[in-house]
Amino acid sequence: MAEVKTAQGNGNVVSLRHVSKRFSNGTLALQDMSLDIGKGDFVSLLGPSGCGKSTALRIIAGLGDTTEGQVHWPDGKPERGDIGFVFQEPTLMPWANVFENVWLPRRLDGASKSTVRDEVSEALEMVGLGGFAAAYPRELSGGMKMRVSIARALVTKPKILLMDEPFAALDEITRFKLNDDLLHLWEAHHWTVVFVTHSVFESVYLSNRIVVMAARPGRVAQQLGNDAPHPRGDGFRTSEDYAHLCRNASDALHAAMDEHTTRAEVTA
């Protein structure tokens, strides 16, 4: 198992320090979670449902408070547009066309249509939807809607991109394609990405660090490094390295889940 380190050694974008989150109904969603996200890192949060991975992501985004612990931003608190967020559903405004949907983050910042035209086009080109600015969401397939959602997250040139199981609802062929495209973009731009998933394969294929989480209470069970070289492609998907990493991640996931079961048995 590779030693765990933050990718580029350029310092952290954000760190979670002993973060706990208890919901008002008493559920402990996260327990004492500490995590460093380095600049240019592609970190996957991998775990079964209910392990608090989405909760952790929302806390980083500032959409939820911590009950204990803190979120530390070494370069200062994020400003408007520093965080890009992609939800599990495309979450587009159905009454607005593709252009207006991607414009939204900049529009809320007071940017007029004419000033953002280039930025929006660039973001749309990036996700391969250059000619679709005038289309309405209902005219697009599920994969294309997701691409719009990604373009919207990218339009502000965020310091960190948070993705909450963005491809979970898509069919496998579409998911593979979007995984490839996302990976190529990351290889070109070296954004900082935190990617929540419950797919072992997705986490191994995409990230350079896999944070395996366990449920009830949600916590970090194990962290795995993934030094497989870039660019990754179909060759990587069929390589022995890939199989080996998948087995490791899978074992870690099962260990985390077993730990939970035995714990539950002991307390019962």
């Binding site: 391969g128 939807l129 397939s141 994969g143 294309m144 579409t174 495209d181 996302l182 190529h184 973009l185």
Partner: peptide, 11 residues
Amino acid sequence: MNVSPTDPAGG
């Protein structure tokens, strides 16, 4: 990202 003709997501 490019939408190739075979991309089911890209139509």
